[in-house]
Amino acid sequence: MIPQTFDYVRARNVGDALKALAAKDGTKVIAGGHSLIPLLKFRLAQPARLVDIGHLDELRGVTEVRRGAKIGAATTYRDLLESKLLAERYPIIAEVTSGIGDLQVRNKGTIGGGLAHADPAADMPAVMLALDAQLVLRSKRGKRTVAAREFFQGAFSTAMAEDELLIAIALPPLPRGAGTAYVSFEQAASGYALAGAAAVVKRSRSTVAHCTLAMTGISDRPYLVRAAEQLVGTQGLPDAIEHVAAQAAAGVEVNGDIHAPADYRRHLAVVAARRALQKAFVRSKK
């Protein structure tokens, strides 16, 4: 497996990378390379040039931003797992990350790379939707922020322009006392999600005050389940959760393949949604 030839530059800083992208000459960004290099090997991607941002300290690490957090786009999954701040404020990040790829992939793969790749069966995008993450994009033209909920536009397709670079992921604070959970069913070979559900539930005394549910692996992109709002105001009893979970794939065009025919995948969506909601509910503070 040998990629097509390409040129390679190692960016000295973000400005360097933006300059390379501004040329719009078929330059692609590489960080961990764990989404891109397999495509290069199969010659499914044939960029003229790679600009490497993997080693840029300014793009790595997790920082505290008021009650939230900012994650550099080139932060590896391993670094996410080792972040105390994330463990404290967003335990769902460790929960989802420990199941991404494998030990070696997590050592090198980056959160930004994974999100920009926009695999419709990737786990992390669902969590980003559930947390209402804001993706910070930069180009020579300037900087803008796109909500994760707007970012994913289809299979392997995002809101990023050709000259833009994902530089950080900003996580707004979770509602106080909220519980979170990510539940997925893995495809046995690839480990990608046949169906994955990320849930955020906040209780206020005996009723649910806030509920978000995001799904991945079901369709051509991750999505929010609008029906999650219907849990708000309920006591979060099994029936109410089931009612919401049952709508996890409602109105969605569900993928079918050799690993999970569409009817089964739709069913798994419901099960994953229910389990995620239940876990998040139990984990939320009364």
Partner: peptide, 20 residues
Amino acid sequence: MAVYDAEGQLLTGTMMDYAV
């Protein structure tokens, strides 16, 4: 399981789809 489609394409052509 090795699976072919109707055109005889091997759908489990890599370790991403063949579950070792």
